[in-house]
Simulated scan of single mutants.
Amino acid sequence: MTLSTTLRPLRRRRTTRTAPLPQSGRDPFFDNAKFLLVVLVVIGHNWAVLVRDMDTVKAAYTVVYLFHMPAFVLLCGLFSRGFAGTAPQIRALLTRVLAPYLLFTVAYKALPTLLHDAPFSLMPTEPTYLLWFLVALFLWRITAPLWRAVRFPVALAVLVSLAAGLTGVGYQLALPRVLMFLPWFVLGLRLRPEHFHRLRTRAVRCTAPLVLAAALGLAYLNAPHINANWLYMRANHVELQTGPWEYLAMRLGLFVVSAALIAAFFALVPARRTAFTALGALTMFPFLVHGLLVQTGQAYGMYDLVGLLGAGALPLLAVFGVAVTVALSSAPVRRVLRPVVEPRFPRWLTPTDADSCGPLGSPMGRQTPAEKRLVTTDQASARDASSQS
């Protein structure tokens, strides 16, 4: 969905008041949430360079990382509710998730070669930097039907997540992160849009800023002792230098804290259409590209210069993150990057009976209207999944 098509209903409202508005099927609340979350992703990666040097940055960074990725994964689960493994859904997953992963893996591996003359090596099964999220999204979505087929899926996913931290799971296909973030995806599968809107009561909205402020204050007081590796969900208990029981207690505590911060975040997301609502459908563009800018800035010492500002670097990099997100979502940038961010599925690979293929390409006859809506919804959510980190 492009910016122009997203805004077209607003133009019709101004010119023809009596004409009924077309149903776009998009909820501005979720587009607003996705845009704000991808902004936090960009800001977090900009702050990461200065985390070791300043407690102020480390506190803000910690609070953001406690909830922004779990919230993103939660939305991915919500948008995967209609995924049933039909042929159109699989093709959308291949073009909107797997293909960009492979293309940007080449870009992120080539960047150190261009900047530092480092040897070029390509290991697609070992995701680099932020690209782990695309691998995880692919695997989560493929397994969505499985989680709908079992009882107590969230509890089971929590057990899988905890077990991953007690074992020596290698980083092939980002499996530690895939498994440790899994409960948030499965929880998203179980939720419905109305659950999010229930957070918009006056009491919750008034409490949300207090929750975020309290988390920020506690993070600042404990900044010297915070180990950010707990937040990345890729280290097991041995790498974190804790015993199994201490690890389990810490992970369960993180689940609770993250849930509180996620609820506070969604309570504060605007439910109405805003100036940035349309950008919420374009989060894959800033998500995939901004990391190249961050790594280039590091190579040229830009963050060292910004670090000289001390605590002033915190708001400066936050504003820069917002600007980068908006710029990378702009029409000219999208026009240039669309072939690698949103490539088309090759027509010659599409079977002639594609419209009559069911789950994983099996014949299923004529689709019902409900099944057609399911496919359309899933193709849209696959484009947005960046919904994107």
Rank of each mutant, 00 (worst) to 15 (best):
residue 2 T to Y: 01
residue 3 L to F: 01
residue 4 S to Y: 13
residue 11 R to L: 01
residue 11 R to M: 02
residue 12 R to D: 07
residue 14 R to I: 06
residue 15 T to I: 14
residue 17 R to H: 15
residue 25 G to W: 00
residue 40 L to A: 01
residue 41 V to F: 00
residue 43 I to V: 15
residue 48 A to N: 10
residue 51 V to S: 01
residue 51 V to P: 01
residue 52 R to G: 14
residue 52 R to Q: 09
residue 52 R to C: 06
residue 53 D to W: 11
residue 66 L to M: 09
residue 66 L to E: 02
residue 70 P to F: 03
residue 79 F to E: 11
residue 80 S to A: 14
residue 84 A to R: 14
residue 84 A to D: 13
residue 85 G to K: 09
residue 91 R to W: 08
residue 91 R to S: 14
residue 92 A to E: 07
residue 94 L to P: 14
residue 94 L to M: 13
residue 95 T to M: 15
residue 95 T to I: 11
residue 106 V to I: 14
residue 106 V to K: 10
residue 107 A to D: 02
residue 109 K to H: 10
residue 116 H to E: 07
residue 132 W to Q: 02
residue 133 F to Y: 10
residue 136 A to H: 09
residue 138 F to D: 04
residue 143 T to P: 00
residue 153 P to I: 15
residue 154 V to I: 12
residue 154 V to P: 09
residue 155 A to W: 11
residue 157 A to D: 00
residue 158 V to C: 00
residue 160 V to F: 06
residue 161 S to F: 04
residue 178 V to Y: 06
residue 183 P to M: 08
residue 183 P to W: 03
residue 184 W to E: 03
residue 197 H to E: 09
residue 197 H to I: 08
residue 199 L to G: 07
residue 199 L to P: 00
residue 199 L to C: 02
residue 201 T to L: 05
residue 206 C to E: 14
residue 206 C to G: 10
residue 213 A to V: 08
residue 214 A to Q: 04
residue 225 H to C: 04
residue 228 A to Q: 15
residue 229 N to G: 11
residue 231 L to Q: 07
residue 231 L to P: 04
residue 233 M to R: 02
residue 239 E to L: 11
residue 246 E to K: 06
residue 248 L to W: 04
residue 248 L to T: 14
residue 249 A to C: 09
residue 250 M to K: 07
residue 252 L to K: 10
residue 257 V to Y: 13
residue 259 A to D: 06
residue 259 A to W: 03
residue 260 A to Q: 10
residue 264 A to Y: 04
residue 264 A to F: 05
residue 267 A to H: 02
residue 271 A to M: 12
residue 277 T to E: 02
residue 283 T to G: 05
residue 293 L to V: 11
residue 300 Y to M: 14
residue 300 Y to C: 12
residue 303 Y to D: 03
residue 308 L to F: 02
residue 310 G to L: 11
residue 315 P to F: 12
residue 321 G to Q: 04
residue 326 V to I: 14
residue 331 A to T: 15
residue 331 A to P: 01
residue 334 R to M: 10
residue 335 R to W: 14
residue 337 L to W: 03
residue 338 R to W: 15
residue 342 E to N: 06
residue 346 P to A: 02
residue 351 P to D: 07
residue 354 A to P: 06
residue 355 D to R: 12
residue 358 G to Q: 01
residue 365 G to L: 09
residue 375 V to I: 13
residue 375 V to E: 15
residue 376 T to F: 13
residue 378 D to A: 10
residue 380 A to Q: 11
residue 384 D to N: 08
